[in-house]
Every structure is written in C-alpha cells, then in structure tokens.
C-alpha cells in the first residue's frame, strides 16, 4: 500500500490534525518558522520577546537551520532546507508549545512516545519528520519566500529564527498522532522481532563499557 499524500496548512485546525495517520506524507502551505536550541534558550531562558505573532501567523515549528545567506541589499538567498535531530530539544519543547501554541513540530527523527503523550497530545500537536535525510533541495523548492530572519546577529545564521512562506513544501512524514503513537517506535518494534538471528555468529566485546546493554530494544535517545 502506498502512503497517502495530504496537503496541510501551517495553521491547521484540530480537525485537520485529527485526520492524520502515522506514515502519511504531508505537504505544507503557509508560514513556518525555524526554532532550535538558540531560539529556545533566548526566548525561554533569556526571556526575550518572540518577534512573531504565534500561533496566529504560524503553528509550525521547524527544527532546522537552512543553507541560506543574507545579501548586502538585505534580501535572502535560501538554497537547501534540512531538519536537525529533534530529540535534543525535549528540554524546552513543553514550555515552548505552551507559550506559542505550536501544533506541528517538524524535524528529524521524531521524539519518544512518552514525549508525545506528555505534551504533544495535551496541546493537540503532532510531529512531522522530514524525509531521507534529507531532501534539502526538494524542501528548498517549497520555499516561496523568506519573510524575515530574527536574531541572526545574536545567534548566527544557523541558529536564527527564519520565517518562511511555504508553497506545497514537502515531503514530510507523519510520525506521531493524537493518541501519542510513535511511527519510529512502531518500526523499531517490527525490526527488533527479527534482529536476534542477525547477531548469531557475533560475540560481545571482551572489554565492556560502563552502562552497556544487551537489550536491542534499546535505542540511543529517549
């Protein structure tokens, strides 16, 4: 069965979000902003005012630093767009979502089902993963316009808050739903069932590492 393809607004309704299923392919229209550790720290720890009206302008937070430059005349040149791994931002996300009303968290690799159940579901939000990784050129084609860039002087171009107008930007994959299910954990479980036979004929290293495990259901994050 081929995945479903869906077009979604970056200010989606509760009904739109409820209709998404794990593994759906999504294309986005509307305003999206990038925010990662630099923006989170500045907004939540330094308490700087967030320079956009959220979530009325955008409820889509992209964990991304674009390959982009600011030209001398103040215009922007945005080439490729690729996400960065999201699990590192779990520390700030509950507060960020409460403050900004973000409904779509977009990034690489997803979060844990624990994160989804604890603060995505109560906020009516889901996680969209980029594809690949990464389809930087395809996503770059979906950038109709760079509306603004904030805090680039304080944070540098990579950590700045880029506000992007998306025109059918994608593909993204739905990686969580409103029950808090996690696409990556579902896939991990399917793979883990058969993995023991692959390890036949290998042996654990004679010198152990502190904290090492033999449980191959484990993963590095979460």
């Amino acid at each position: 069965m081929k995945p479903r393809h869906i077009t979604l607004s970056t200010t989606p309704s509760a009904h739109d979000i409820a209709g998404l299923r794990l593994g759906d392919i999504v294309y986005l229209d509307g305003l999206m902003y990038t925010a990662r550790e630099g923006v989170y720290m500045r907004a939540l720890e330094v308490k700087a005012n967030i320079p956009e009206e959220l979530p009325s302008q955008s409820a889509a937070n992209f964990h991304c630093s674009p390959a982009a430059a600011i030209r001398e005349d103040g215009t922007f040149d945005m080439g490729a767009v690729t996400a960065t791994a999201s699990f590192r931002f779990a520390k700030w996300l509950p507060e960020w979502m409460a403050k900004t009303g973000a409904k779509l968290i977009i990034g690489k690799g997803g979060m844990s089902s624990k994160d989804y159940k604890e603060y995505f579901v109560p906020n009516g939000a889901v996680y969209l993963s980029t594809v690949g990784y990464g389809t930087g050129a395809l996503l770059g084609r979906g950038v109709e316009k760079v509306e603004a860039v904030h805090w680039h002087e304080e944070l540098g171009l990579a950590q700045a808050m880029w506000v992007i107008k998306c025109n059918h930007m994608g593909p993204f994959i739905v990686a969580s739903d409103l029950e808090g299910n996690c696409l990556f954990e579902r896939e991990n479980a399917r793979i883990s069932e058969k993995i023991t036979r692959v390890y036949e004929g290998t042996r654990p290293a004679v010198l152990k590492r502190f904290g090492e495990t033999d449980d191959r259901n484990d993963e590095l994050i979460g």
């Binding site: 674009p66 390959a67 050129a137 084609r141």
Partner: peptide
C-alpha cells in the same frame, strides 16, 4: 536548481 542537496552542510 544548482542548489545544495542537503540543508545541513
């Protein structure tokens, strides 16, 4: 497009 394949350089 002569644009980078990936946004992460």
């Amino acid at each position: 497009d002569r644009r980078a394949m990936c946004g992460d350089t």
